[in-house]
């Protein structure tokens, strides 16, 4: 039951999570999934099936730039880098999330702070 709720909560937040971890530097797909999981101490782990469509959609929108490069271990990998458009999108999504989470905390906590 808890996993299902978490999945529902994660829906729509993949973009925010991806942009957030890429703000710190270039990463490839598997690393992005790992980094999200690490940063949230395992609380968030976006579905791998939805990660790549999200990455490619962000690239199509100009929020990310992808390039193939040799990696430290193994073959060439597709690295993603956040663009100026992506930084703007991140700020917008982060503000929306902050507003949403504050409202949700107030509603769930039962307080009525102004």
């Amino acid at each position: 039951m808890g996993g299902r709720i978490r999945t529902q909560l994660l829906k729509g937040t993949t973009t925010l999570l991806v942009l957030t971890v890429l703000r710190d530097g270039e990463l490839y797909g598997y690393e992005i999934a790992q980094r999200i999981s690490e940063r949230s101490s395992g609380a968030f782990a976006p579905s791998e099936g939805s990660l790549y469509p999200a990455l490619h959609a962000l690239e199509a929108d100009g929020a990310l730039q992808a390039s193939w490069r040799e990696s430290d271990r193994g073959p060439r990998r597709r690295y993603y880098k956040i663009t100026k458009t992506g930084l703007g999108m991140l700020e917008e999504h982060a503000n929306e999330w902050a507003t949403f989470s504050r409202g949700m905390a107030r509603a769930v906590g039962g307080t009525n702070q102004q």
């Binding site: 490839y28 797909g29 598997y30 791998e48 790549y52 490619h56 193939w68 193994g74 073959p75 060439r76 990998r77 597709r78």
Partner: peptide, 8 residues
């Protein structure tokens, strides 16, 4: 896409 998913 194939290359990326194979890497993954």
């Amino acid at each position: 896409v194939r290359a990326e998913l194979a890497d993954h």
